[in-house]
């Protein structure tokens, strides 16, 4: 299918002797938002790390825009237009807010995102532009992490548990910005513990269980029963 943007075939991943992913198959179309849900340790973050190129010893194939990216280094994959908002935000502590954003855009890929448009999306960041990133609140740090990924003007953006550890009101604020974030033609993978959040924002959903795809379906037609069965394997 020409619309297939990301195609993952038979992906395995290991941490030393521990196998975290078993033969995962997955596809994301151009402009599509896909949610990945699952319990702790189901392999969600590992999946995003594999796609980003941070898991060196995996096997299987990952195609991104018709290029085989399995085996490429993370920095090579970044050049192709793939950005990750990592779990736990992971800002650069010795860089200021603005420097964190600038380094996100250092590849200078063309697109709508630059310092101005990120500041327009999250005005608070413009006020704190010269603060060290460590001085910000959790929610503000998450905005920097999202802004840093946007600055790359990616074709695929991946969010890893962006609501983790944030107050509900902040989560609402951040999620309300997501539709703006995922603009025209940009695809997204959203890893989320909060199932209803994940379903409301995505068009399709994958559920991982112990490193395997246990369920796949459309976000608006999938049933709660099917999810809980896939989630807990009962």
């Amino acid at each position: 299918m020409s619309d297939e943007f990301v195609t993952i075939t038979n992906l395995d991943a290991h941490y030393g002797d521990f196998q975290a992913l078993y033969g995962v198959d997955m596809h994301i179309d151009r402009g599509e938002v896909v949610a990945v849900i699952g319990a702790n340790g189901a392999g969600k973050s590992t999946l995003l790390r594999s796609i980003s190129g941070l898991m060196p010893n995996g096997s299987g194939q990952i195609k991104f825009k018709d290029a085989d990216i399995s085996g490429l280094r993370a920095d090579e994959i970044a050049h192709l237009g793939l950005a990750l908002v990592p779990e736990g935000r992971q800002l650069f502590p010795s860089l200021s807010v603005e420097e964190n954003l600038i380094i996100g855009g250092r590849l200078q890929r063309p697109g709508p995102w630059n310092l101005e448009s990120v500041y327009a999306l999250f005005p608070i960041l413009a006020e704190r532009r010269n603060s060290p990133s460590t001085a910000l609140s959790g929610g503000q740090q998450q905005m920097v992490a999202i802004g840093r990924a946007l600055m790359a003007n990616p074709d695929l953006i991946m969010f890893d548990e962006i609501s983790l550890g944030l107050a509900p009101i902040v989560i609402g604020e951040i999620y309300s910005a997501i539709p703006d974030v995922i603009g025209q033609g940009v695809s997204a993978i959203i890893v989320e513990q909060d199932i209803s959040k994940a379903l409301s924002i995505s068009s399709r959903v994958y559920c991982l269980q112990e490193g395997r795809v246990a369920l796949e379906g459309n976000s608006d037609t999938i049933t709660r029963e099917a999810i809980s069965q896939a989630y807990f394997g009962v």
């Binding site: 050049h79 990592p86 010795s94 860089l95 420097e99 250092r106 590849l107 790359a152």
Partner: peptide, 24 residues
């Protein structure tokens, strides 16, 4: 400078710096 930023970013967190397209 941009080079200094890259050096500090790699020093802070090598993995995430790679995601910014920096070849460590």
């Amino acid at each position: 400078t941009a080079l200094g930023r890259a050096l500090r970013a790699v020093s802070d967190n090598q993995e995430i710096a790679q995601l910014m397209g920096l070849d460590k």
